[in-house]
Design a protein around this nucleic acid. Structure first.
Lengths: 228, 228
DNA sequence: ATTTGGGACAATTTCGAAATTTAGTTGACC
DNA sequence: GGTCAACTAAATTTCGAAATTGTCCCAAAT
């Protein structure tokens, strides 16, 4: 008896979700059933169910009788998303600083250490962020908010962060203007969090989030991508 | 050729969602396929897809190989949900007051007027809120937040309000302590909103949301319902 | 030259049964 | 008398084809 605790639906959902968040499936791309069925080795019903769940998460868009597509990106949406993230992640981080215990502080330190010791750019393509760094970066920010006791607030913040992952593929690892230090920004956030300085921590988090969006908008790559 | 713009999936989803939000399907209840298929006149695949979407909305819970259930309610969850609603709806209302135009003010007045002219309790059962009032009450609160330009923030607030509908079935229309005036609370919120007094409006909104939760927790009906 | 209609093709949507798994019950054995 | 195993029954999960709908191309008419 093979150990198959997870249903085929769950694995298809997890894999589809991973393919979208990692950028292997790019915004605007059509998600055809025939192709996905063969690729994942399951029937259309399983794929439909997984896609429906992703629609509700905002990662996939469905047009009735027309199919499913990876949610498209756009400049205005990025602005809205960034505003929402700044305000809500600040709120949740404030809760975390107020409610988090020593165990949480340890987790923050640990996840930050893992992030620092990850290569920023991919070995094979120095123009793209490494998958390892993206994974640890996501973990680090999620851990920052883990001190907040309210699971509803944590869930909402995580949902917004997932949506933002759609844009990460287009982020440039190097700031060509030369005046950015991502690692330093993370370190400053950790410092303020451990000092329990809520105002300083939220301010630095907002600047960190805003900076990424500003550079992305200025690069003009979003407008180029949304034409698909 | 019959005009059927909506797929069977969409109608099943909408109807299931309505049945849950209106309390016809109560928290903890099992959602068996055979029953739903006959009731809605569709096959299992359609039901599965609709249920999967509702799972992602937090209205339905799924246990692999075991079926789907209406999300259960609990005291702790109600506390978390209320805290999240207070903080996020305040945030969105502040945006609405800052960004909303005259057209939005008109919508607020209109939806409030419709709410005032709806019967509070059901004609056949004076112990329960009327469906008409619940519908208009939901519309009123949604309209309040409609002035916020950011669709992401509006969506999050609406999502939290939907989750709170699971608890509305257990709300008592009459405050047996006798010191509550729901209609008055709504009027005060409208007044503060039209005066563009952000601090006062958000304060009154928070008190309005908190009051409902307090009465529900004090009544002890939630602990009785979650035992199912 | 543009538009309108028909028709073949491809894709999504829906169905109903087969395959798996879980829950409940009966029986045998310690 | 209690525990465990196997069997039965009911439910979920999965599949693959049928039905429906949208898309595209081409021909005919304005």
């Amino acid at each position: 008896m093979a150990i198959q605790a997870k249903t085929r639906n769950e694995v298809a959902f997890a894999r589809l979700r991973g393919d979208i968040l990692s950028g292997r499936l790019i915004p605007g791309q059509k998600l055809a059933f025939a192709e996905l069925c063969e690729s994942y080795g399951v029937s259309v019903g399983v794929i439909r169910e997984a896609l429906s769940r992703l629609v509700e998460q905002g990662l996939v868009h469905s047009a009735p009788q027309q199919g499913f597509f990876v949610t498209t990106i756009s400049g205005p949406d990025l602005v809205y998303l960034t505003q929402a993230r700044c305000e809500i992640e600040s709120l949740v981080l404030a809760h975390a600083i107020a409610e988090g215990n020593v165990e949480w502080e340890s987790l923050v330190l640990a996840s930050h250490h893992r992030l620092v010791n990850a290569p920023l750019v991919s070995p094979e393509d120095p123009e793209r962020l490494s998958e390892e760094w993206v994974e640890r970066h996501s973990d680090f920010h999620q851990t920052l908010l883990l001190g907040c006791e309210n699971p509803r607030l944590r869930g909402i913040a995580g949902q917004l962060r997932d949506s933002a992952e759609l844009y990460r593929r287009w982020s440039v690892p190097f700031d060509h203007e030369g005046d950015r230090d991502i690692a330093g920004e993370h370190a400053l956030i950790v410092e303020a969090v451990l000092k329990r300085d809520t105002a300083l921590a939220t301010q630095r988090l907002v600047e960190h989030i805003s900076k990424t969006t500003s550079l992305l908008l200025e690069s003009g790559v979003v407008e180029g991508a949304e034409k698909r």
